[in-house]
Design a protein around this nucleic acid. Structure first.
Lengths: 183, 183
DNA sequence: CTCTCATGGCTAACGCTGTTAGCCCAATGG
DNA sequence: CCATTGGGCTAACAGCGTTAGCCATGAGAG
């Protein structure tokens, strides 16, 4: 059990420091001083390692988001974590989630935070989530032109959602203390 | 020259129909009735094929976006194209753009459209772009819960940006030449 | 008509990947 | 004292992208 954790640890370090092309079963084994096939005594395959890393990533991201008082702070924390752990973020996003392996509530927790800050409106919360993910993804993929002022983009993105306090058609308007906080 | 086009054609079909794991040099050669090494007489490597597919994807996406009169139509066209060509969209996004190979103006053109619909404000245009990409990316990766009403999410996203006609704090409502909103 | 040479195939092979089969040693527990 | 099992090992397989080098065909030049 302990060896498994050790394997995941080394895998994370390898991924974050040397990039995904270095996260190889043989390389991983080398780093642990054993042979590649021995890894399979602790782990079912590479995909399990990746799933574990995804789980870690989501947990850490969630923790980084915890306690942010308003939308600007939440957005800033999201972007900050993603830029600090780009490979981990990318890995965690390029997989169908593996909901079964996921510690229950990890994602729900983060989602709840966004939802609260979105004034309780689920579609708005998801739109915000999508925007945050999209901006990070484009930035990490290097798809913005070199000189782009991304701080300003995020500021604009956040203020747009802060300004228009979702006029819910069915009247369920979150009075959301957070609503005005960032405004 | 013609054979090269044929190769890219088959590669696109293979990618779109059977998925990225089937887009293999040997499989591609099989499909063309030749041996894998013969492909290198027309193409420098797999990465060149992928770059060509990325270029095609961006061109087609741009065309799909052309002529959309307003933000809702633009967003709908964006999402529609991405969902119709998921593998192509994914491939085109998981690469640093290959700006050199890109037909000049292809992306700038699309960027200009977004910029115009964003009232000429560059950061807002980029925020919109990020949101559209993020929502599509999350949807394609299957990261929304099964029952999520994504139509509603997009509606909310679009109306949010439509509602708040960016009141720039310093009055800088850029007439902003279409320079480059996209990267 | 012949010679040359580029075009576009071919086979063999290399080094890499994830993964499986099967062996073996050491420690633990009845 | 013996059995079981945990955790290592080597050998090997199939598949990946890619390179080296050989050979047939066809077109243009002398």
């Amino acid at each position: 059990m302990n060896r498994r954790e050790e394997i995941i640890d080394v895998a994370q370090r390898l991924l974050e420091v040397e990039g995904p092309e270095s996260l190889t079963m043989r390389r991983l084994a080398d780093e642990l001083g054993i042979q590649a096939p021995s890894l399979y005594k602790h782990v079912s395959g590479k995909s399990e390692i990746e799933a574990a890393l995804q789980q870690r990533a989501l947990r850490q991201l969630t923790e980084a988001l915890a306690g942010t008082p308003d939308l600007p702070a939440l957005a800033a924390a999201y972007r900050r974590w993603a830029l600090a752990h780009p490979r981990l973020y990318e890995l965690s996003t390029r997989q169908p989630l593996a909901r079964d392996r996921l510690a229950p509530g990890v994602e729900v927790e983060a989602a709840a935070a966004v939802l609260r800050l979105a004034g309780g409106d689920l579609p708005t919360a998801r739109a915000i989530w999508g925007m945050a993910h999209g901006l990070v993804d484009l930035e990490l993929a290097g798809r913005f032109p070199p000189g782009a002022d991304l701080d300003e983009v995020w500021r604009r993105a956040v203020t747009t959602f802060s300004a228009s306090r979702a006029p819910d058609p069915d009247g369920r308007v979150g009075p959301g203390a957070a609503g005005r906080a960032g405004g």
